[in-house]
Nucleic acid binder design. Structure first.
Lengths: 143, 143
DNA sequence: AGTGAGAATTAGAATAATTCTAATATATAA
DNA sequence: TTATATATTAGAATTATTCTAATTCTCACT
C-alpha cells in the first residue's frame, strides 16, 4: 500500500548515486522520510530516527537533511514562519496548507501548467525552481 | 517617478478604512513601506522608521506589521529560512528570488493564469490565497 | 475641554529553530 | 594498514520573533 520499503542496499545506492557517503545516519534519515508520505519537521524526523539509532544527535539530523535536500533526494517545504518541513515526493507538485488542521497536502502539477508558469517570467529571468503554495481549507469530502 | 508620497491624511484614511486606529507608529511603518518598492525585513523597516520616530521599539514595528498584513495593506513574503520580508505591492504577483544577489523581484501574474492555478486543486479544496515563488538568476539584460 | 475604558506602545526577557564549534570517530583511497 | 578527508556529536551560540507587564495613548462620551 505505502511506498516500497527501502532496504539497506537500495538506500546506499541512492546515496552513492548522488556522490554522498552512505553513513548509517544518512541512510536512516532518508529511510524514515521515504517510508511515510507526510511532511515531518526536523524534530519529528529526529524522534523517528532516534528510535532506531538512539545515539544520533539533532545536529546530525540537520546535517543529513541538508545533504539530502542538496542532492535532490528529498524536498524542503517552508511555510510561513513555521519550522521547515521535509517532503519525500519528488514529482512536480504544489502544496496545500490547510489553515484549519495545519495539515499539508501534495497537489499534482500538470507539466504544461508548470511550463505556463515559467512563461510569465520577464526575459532575462531563468528560474531553476518554482514553489507554489495554496492556503485555505479542505472539505473532508471523502478523504 | 516612485509611488506617490502618502501624506498624513491619506495614510490615516487607509488605516481607518480597515478599522485600525491610526497611530503615529502604524502610520510611519506603513509610509516607509509604501514609499519604496522593495521588500524590507522587519529590521530594515525598524531602521527606516527610527530615523523619523526615534522612540519606536522593535516590538511595535512587529505589532504594526502584523496589523497591516492582517488588514491587507501590505503583504508578507517568506523565503526559505530568511527573515520575513514585507511587500507594498498589492497586485496579484509572484516573487522571483535571485540566488546570486539575494534580491527579490515582483513578477506580474495574469488573472487567467491565477485562475488556472486554482483549477489544479482537487474537489473539496478551497484556497484563499496562493503563493508563487521562483528561484534562479536574473540576467542583468537592461535593468 | 475632561474623563474613563480599552487598545497600543515600550523595554527587555523569553522562546525556539537552526547553526556553529571543536573534539572525536568513521569511511575510503592509496 | 594507514592517512586524509569527511561525518558525527554535545552543547553553546545565534537570531528572528513573541511574550510580559508596566506605561501611555486614543477616542467615544460627557
Amino acid at each position: 500500500m505505502a511506498s516500497p520499503i527501502e532496504n539497506h542496499a537500495a538506500l546506499c545506492e541512492r546515496l552513492k548515486s548522488c556522490d554522498v557517503r552512505p553513513t548509517p545516519q544518512r541512510e536512516i534519515v532518508l529511510k524514515v522520510i521515504l517510508e511515510k508520505r507526510d511532511h515531518p519537521t526536523a524534530d519529528e524526523i529526529f524522534a523517528r530516527v532516534k528510535s532506531q539509532l538512539p545515539t544520533i544527535s539533532l545536529a546530525t539530523v540537520y546535517n543529513c537533511l541538508e545533504t539530502l535536500v542538496q542532492c535532490g533526494l528529498i524536498r524542503q517545504v517552508n511555510l510561513e514562519r513555521a519550522p521547515t518541513r521535509y517532503c519525500p515526493n519528488l514529482h512536480e507538485h504544489a502544496h496545500f496548507h490547510d489553515e484549519q488542521t495545519g495539515r499539508i497536502h501534495d497537489v499534482d502539477l500538470p507539466p504544461e501548467l508548470l511550463a505556463r508558469l515559467h512563461e510569465v517570467l520577464p526575459s532575462g529571468f531563468r528560474a531553476s525552481s518554482v514553489e507554489l503554495t495554496f492556503r485555505g481549507s479542505a472539505q473532508p469530502s471523502a478523504n
